Amino acid sequence: MLDKIQEAGSSKSTFYTLLGGEQGGTAAIRLLVETFYDIMDSDPKAAPIRAMHSADLTAAREKLFMFLTGWTGGPQLYIERYGNPFLRRRHLPFSIGESERDQWMYCMIKAMQTLKMDEVLMQKLAEQLYGVADFMRNREAE
């Protein structure tokens, strides 16, 4: 699903490989997701999107972890358990505009920064995630 990205001066790799592959990619994605939801759960800037989630974030954490593992080029955990993610369809019950997209991206970028992710990798990953987050919008610009 994810196009391979070109790592400077080397062969093409997926984000999953760049995050550590089988040796560390899964752990890196788990840590990213946990940090992301910890930020969403505590940062007032993310309060509107936090309110869209249930009080218990356990299921959301697990589903995002499973999705991102496959999306980055690792094992297709989400698809194996739930089938096609149909992301936009699954997000239709929620009113998502530019503000919600930007709050989601704020949490994700802050999580990557908190984890001190490589700057180039973080920028490339954020660019790709922005496209996904923007695709979730189902409300016109205000």
Score class of each variant (00 low, 15 high):
3 D>H: 05
39 I>K: 00
108 M>N: 00
26 T>R: 14
39 I>S: 01
113 Q>S: 10
124 K>Y: 04
66 M>D: 09
125 L>T: 07
87 L>K: 02
113 Q>D: 15
19 L>W: 02
50 R>A: 08
105 M>V: 09
123 Q>E: 15
94 F>Q: 07
52 M>L: 15
107 C>N: 02
107 C>D: 01
7 E>K: 14
3 D>R: 08
51 A>E: 14
17 T>K: 11
6 Q>F: 09
7 E>A: 15
118 D>C: 06
6 Q>A: 14
54 S>G: 15
104 W>S: 03
14 T>S: 15
39 I>R: 01
55 A>G: 15
102 D>C: 06
128 Q>K: 15
79 I>K: 12
131 G>P: 00
132 V>T: 12
64 L>I: 08
27 A>P: 08
66 M>W: 05
96 I>Y: 02
142 E>Y: 08
116 K>V: 09
11 S>F: 12
18 L>K: 05
61 R>M: 10
116 K>R: 13
103 Q>W: 06
99 S>I: 08
1 M>P: 06
43 D>Q: 04
91 H>A: 03
140 E>A: 15
114 T>Q: 12
89 R>H: 11
110 K>A: 15
58 T>C: 06
36 F>I: 04
116 K>N: 14
66 M>K: 14
95 S>Y: 08
98 E>A: 11
133 A>F: 06
59 A>H: 13
46 A>I: 00
127 E>S: 11
94 F>E: 09
26 T>A: 14
51 A>L: 06
29 I>P: 03
130 Y>G: 00
39 I>F: 03
134 D>A: 12
111 A>E: 01
61 R>S: 06
19 L>S: 06
33 V>T: 14
74 G>V: 02
57 L>D: 07
82 Y>F: 15
75 P>L: 00
133 A>M: 02
82 Y>C: 03
105 M>N: 03
55 A>W: 12
77 L>D: 09
33 V>E: 01
55 A>C: 05
75 P>V: 01
75 P>D: 12
60 A>F: 07
110 K>G: 02
28 A>R: 03
24 G>R: 12
91 H>P: 02
17 T>L: 08
112 M>H: 03
118 D>R: 07
98 E>L: 13
24 G>V: 11
63 K>A: 08
91 H>Y: 04
55 A>S: 15
87 L>N: 05
60 A>T: 14
110 K>I: 02
95 S>T: 12
132 V>Y: 04
99 S>V: 09
27 A>H: 10
115 L>G: 07
58 T>A: 15
48 P>F: 05
32 L>Q: 12
89 R>V: 09
53 H>L: 10
56 D>P: 06
27 A>D: 15
24 G>Y: 10
129 L>W: 01
26 T>W: 00
81 R>W: 02
73 G>S: 09
14 T>L: 08
100 E>G: 00
133 A>V: 02
51 A>M: 05
76 Q>A: 13
19 L>C: 10
8 A>G: 07
1 M>K: 09
130 Y>P: 00
134 D>S: 11
119 E>C: 04
43 D>P: 02
66 M>A: 10
65 F>R: 10
89 R>Y: 11
32 L>I: 13
101 R>W: 01
117 M>V: 14
45 K>H: 11
26 T>P: 06
108 M>H: 03
120 V>S: 12
135 F>A: 08
8 A>T: 13
60 A>I: 05
140 E>N: 12
28 A>N: 14
91 H>C: 04
3 D>E: 11
48 P>R: 09
131 G>V: 05
118 D>I: 03
55 A>V: 13
116 K>Y: 05
